[in-house]
Simulated scan of single mutants.
Amino acid sequence: MADVRTYTLIYVVLLVLGTGKFVFFEFTPYDIALAATFVLAIAKTLLIAGYYQHLIEEPRSITYMMVISVFMVLLLTVAAGYSIQ
Rank of each mutant, 00 (worst) to 15 (best):
17 L>K: 06
12 V>N: 01
28 T>S: 13
14 L>A: 06
42 I>C: 09
36 A>V: 02
12 V>E: 05
18 G>K: 04
33 A>Y: 02
24 F>M: 12
30 Y>E: 14
21 K>G: 08
16 V>Q: 02
8 T>C: 14
26 E>V: 04
28 T>E: 08
41 A>K: 00
36 A>Q: 08
43 A>K: 05
23 V>R: 05
37 T>R: 05
23 V>G: 00
38 F>G: 09
26 E>A: 13
38 F>L: 10
13 V>S: 10
22 F>Y: 09
13 V>W: 11
19 T>S: 15
32 I>Y: 12
41 A>T: 06
31 D>I: 08
33 A>N: 00
20 G>A: 07
10 I>K: 01
36 A>C: 10
35 A>Q: 04
8 T>Y: 14
24 F>A: 14
17 L>F: 09
31 D>V: 13
33 A>T: 06
20 G>Y: 01
13 V>P: 08
13 V>K: 13
17 L>H: 02
16 V>I: 15
17 L>N: 09
11 Y>D: 14
29 P>S: 11
19 T>H: 11
9 L>E: 13
17 L>G: 02
37 T>K: 08
21 K>P: 00
38 F>S: 07
13 V>Q: 06
36 A>W: 02
39 V>A: 15
36 A>S: 10
36 A>G: 08
34 L>W: 10
29 P>Q: 11
19 T>A: 15
43 A>Q: 02
14 L>F: 11
8 T>K: 15
32 I>W: 07
33 A>F: 01
18 G>H: 07
18 G>E: 07
31 D>K: 10
42 I>G: 14
32 I>D: 05
19 T>M: 14
15 L>N: 03
20 G>W: 04
12 V>Y: 09
27 F>S: 03
30 Y>R: 15
34 L>Q: 14
27 F>I: 04
35 A>T: 06
35 A>E: 03
43 A>Y: 00
35 A>W: 04
13 V>E: 09
36 A>P: 03
38 F>Y: 12
31 D>T: 13
29 P>L: 04
10 I>Q: 06
38 F>T: 04
35 A>R: 06
21 K>D: 01
9 L>C: 05
10 I>W: 08
12 V>A: 14
9 L>N: 12
28 T>A: 04
10 I>F: 10
30 Y>H: 14
11 Y>M: 09
30 Y>P: 03
40 L>C: 04
20 G>C: 02
